[in-house]
C-alpha cells in the first residue's frame, strides 16, 4: 500500500496542491507554474492509465510529450519573471533551439518507445540555469520586500529543486531501463518524492499570493 502511494505521488501531490489553490481562489491567469502543475496531473494520470487501464506495455511517449510541453510552459514562466530584457529574449531563443533539438532527438536518437533521457536532461539543465539566473538577478538588485513572502521565489525554488535533483536520474534512466537493471523503478519513486518536495515549495508560493477573499 505504502509503495502504491509513492507510486502515485506524482498525481496525488499536485492534485492536492491544485485543490488547495482552488480553495484559496488563486488567480490562475498568467500563473504558468499552476498550469504546469495542472499539466503534470493530466499527463501523469494519462501515463498511469495507459498501463493500468488500457494495459498497453509502453507509456513512454507520454513522457516525451510531457517534457516538451513542460519546457514550453516553464520557458514562458521564466520569460515572465526575468527582469533583464536580454534574459527574456534568451528564453525565447532557447525555446526555439530546444524545439529543434527535441524533434531531431525523437527522429534519430530516442524514439517514442524509449525513455527520453536526452531531451529531459537537457531541459533540466536549462531550467536549472534559469533558476540560478533568477537567483542572481535577485541578489544583484533585490526588491526591498521580504523574499520569503515572494511567490516567484518559492515557485522557482520548487522548480530548481525538482530539475536539479532529478538531473542524474533523468540522464541515466534510459540506459538503466534498457539494460533491464533491477530496481530501476525504485529510482522513479525517488523522483516522485522530489516531485512532492517541489509541490510543497509551490504550495508555500501559493500561500504567499493574497487570496481574493480578503
Amino acid at each position: 500500500m505504502s509503495f502504491k502511494v509513492i507510486f502515485y505521488l506524482d498525481v496525488i501531490s499536485p492534485f492536492i496542491l491544485l485543490f488547495f489553490a482552488f480553495l484559496r481562489k488563486v488567480v490562475f491567469r498568467n500563473d504558468y507554474v499552476l498550469y504546469y502543475i495542472l499539466l503534470q496531473i493530466l499527463l501523469n494520470l494519462v501515463a498511469s492509465a495507459v498501463i493500468d487501464i488500457f494495459h498497453h506495455t509502453n507509456n513512454l511517449y507520454v513522457y516525451h510529450l510531457n517534457c516538451l510541453t513542460s519546457f514550453i510552459i516553464l520557458s514562458l514562466y521564466f520569460h515572465q519573471i526575468f527582469r533583464h530584457q536580454n534574459y527574456k529574449k534568451l528564453t525565447l531563443i532557447i525555446l526555439g533551439l530546444f524545439f529543434v533539438f527535441f524533434v531531431i532527438n525523437v527522429s534519430f536518437w530516442e524514439s517514442l518507445d524509449v525513455f527520453n533521457s536526452n531531451s529531459l536532461s537537457v531541459a533540466s539543465f536549462i531550467l536549472t540555469i534559469y533558476s540560478l539566473m533568477y537567483y542572481l538577478e535577485n541578489l544583484t538588485s533585490p526588491p526591498i520586500e521580504n523574499i520569503l513572502k515572494s511567490k516567484t521565489f518559492w515557485y522557482t525554488t520548487g522548480l530548481f529543486t525538482y530539475y536539479t535533483c532529478n538531473f542524474f536520474i533523468f540522464i541515466t534512466y534510459r540506459k538503466l531501463t534498457q539494460d533491464h537493471i533491477t530496481d530501476a523503478a525504485f529510482l522513479w519513486r525517488i523522483h516522485n518524492i522530489v516531485f512532492l518536495i517541489m509541490c510543497v515549495y509551490v504550495f508555500i508560493g501559493i500561500l504567499c499570493t493574497p487570496s481574493l477573499k480578503k
Binding site: L132, Y135, N138, L139, I147, T157, F160, T161, T164, C165, N166, F167, F168, I169, T172, L176, I181, T182, D183, A184, F186, L187, I190, V194
Partner: peptide, 25 residues
C-alpha cells in the same frame, strides 16, 4: 544494484547542493 546506488548517491548529493544554494540565496 550498484548502478542504482550510484545514481541514488548522486541524486542525494544534488539535493544537498540545491539545499545549500537555497540557503545561500
Amino acid at each position: 544494484s550498484e548502478e542504482i546506488k550510484i545514481v541514488l548517491a548522486i541524486t542525494v548529493l544534488l539535493f544537498a547542493i540545491t539545499f545549500f544554494v537555497i540557503v545561500f540565496v
